[in-house]
Lab assay of single mutants.
Amino acid sequence: GPMASDKRPRTAFTAEQLQRLKAEFQTNRYLTEQRRQSLAQELGLNESQIKIWFQNKRAK
Rank of each mutant, 00 (worst) to 15 (best):
Q37A: 12
Q55R: 14
W53M: 01
A40E: 03
A59Q: 10
L39P: 00
A23N: 09
K57H: 07
I52V: 09
A4L: 11
L43S: 02
R10P: 15
R36Y: 09
E42Y: 03
L39S: 00
R35F: 03
E47L: 04
T32V: 03
S48P: 04
Q19L: 09
P2H: 12
Q34E: 10
A23I: 08
Q41I: 13
Q55M: 08
M3Q: 14
A4N: 11
N56T: 12
R35C: 04
K51D: 10
T32A: 04
N28S: 12
A23S: 10
A59C: 11
Q26H: 12
L43E: 00
K51A: 08
K22E: 07
A40Y: 01
M3V: 14
N56P: 02
R58Q: 06
E24M: 03
R8M: 05
L18H: 07
A15M: 12
E24L: 03
N46H: 08
E47A: 10
K57F: 05
Q41M: 12
G1T: 07
G44P: 00
Q49R: 14
W53F: 10
N46K: 15
E33I: 12
R20I: 08
Q55D: 07
L43R: 00
S5A: 12
F13L: 07
R8D: 14
Q37E: 05
K60A: 13
F13E: 01
D6Y: 01
A12Q: 15
Q17W: 01
R35S: 06
R35D: 05
T27S: 14
K51F: 08
R8S: 08
A59P: 05
T14R: 03
N28W: 04
K51T: 09
D6L: 03
D6I: 06
S48V: 12
K22N: 09
R36Q: 14
F25Q: 01
K51N: 10
D6G: 10
E16I: 12
Q37C: 08
K51Y: 09
A12D: 14
G44Q: 11
F13S: 02
Q49P: 02
E16N: 12
N56I: 14
A4K: 09
L43A: 01
A15D: 09
A23R: 09
T32K: 05
F13C: 03
T27E: 13
A40G: 04
E24C: 03
R8Q: 06
Q19K: 11
K7P: 08
N28V: 03
Y30I: 09
L18D: 04
Y30F: 09
R8N: 10
L31S: 02
E42S: 05
F13P: 03
R35P: 02
N56K: 15
A59I: 09
K60G: 06
T32S: 11
Q49L: 12
T14G: 03
T14P: 01
Q17A: 05
S38G: 10
L39V: 03
A12E: 15
A59L: 10
L43V: 05
L45H: 02
N46W: 06
E33Y: 11
A59V: 06
R20D: 01
K51I: 13
F25E: 01
A40M: 03
K7N: 13
K60W: 04
W53D: 00
M3N: 12
T32F: 02
R58D: 04
A40C: 04
N46D: 10
A59F: 05
Q37S: 11
R20T: 05
K7I: 05
R8G: 13
A12S: 15
K60Q: 13
R58C: 06
K7Y: 06
R58I: 10
R36I: 06
A15Q: 10
P9Y: 04
R20A: 08
R8P: 15
S38W: 10
R8F: 11
R8T: 11
F25H: 02
L18N: 08
L45C: 07
G1S: 07
R20G: 05
G44C: 06
S48H: 13
Q55H: 13
W53A: 02
L39M: 05
K7M: 06
N56F: 14
E16Y: 12
Q41N: 13
R10K: 15
N46R: 08
P9E: 07
D6V: 08
L18E: 06
S38N: 13
R36H: 04
I52S: 06
Y30M: 07
F54S: 00
R29N: 14
N28T: 09
K60D: 04
T11R: 15
E42C: 04
A4C: 12
N46F: 12
S38V: 15
R36E: 08
T27Q: 11
Q55I: 11
I50Y: 01
E33A: 15
F25A: 02
P9S: 03
R8W: 07
T11Y: 15
R20E: 02
T32E: 04
G1H: 10
Q37D: 05
L21A: 00
K22M: 10
Q26L: 11
L45D: 00
Q55C: 08
S38Y: 11
W53E: 00
E47C: 04
S38K: 11
R10H: 15
D6Q: 06
R36K: 14
A4D: 09
L18Q: 06
T11N: 10
P9H: 05
R58N: 11
E24Y: 02
L31Q: 03
D6M: 03
F25T: 01
A23C: 07
K22P: 00
W53V: 02
K57P: 03
Q19Y: 06
T11C: 11
L21E: 00
A12W: 15
G1D: 12
E42M: 04
N46P: 06
Q19D: 10
W53Q: 00
Q55F: 10
Q49F: 06
Q26N: 10
L45N: 00
L45P: 00
P9W: 06
E24R: 01
Q55S: 14
R58L: 10
N28P: 01
E47P: 09
E24A: 06
S38P: 01
I52K: 15
R58G: 05
L45A: 05
L39R: 00
R10Y: 15
N28I: 03
L45W: 01
G1Y: 14
P9F: 04
L21N: 01
T32M: 02
F13R: 01
Q55A: 12
P2W: 03
E16C: 07
L21P: 00
A23P: 00
N28R: 05
R29T: 05
A12I: 08
Y30G: 04
S48M: 13
T27G: 09
R35L: 09
R29V: 06
E33D: 13
L18I: 10
G1Q: 08
R58A: 08
I52E: 10
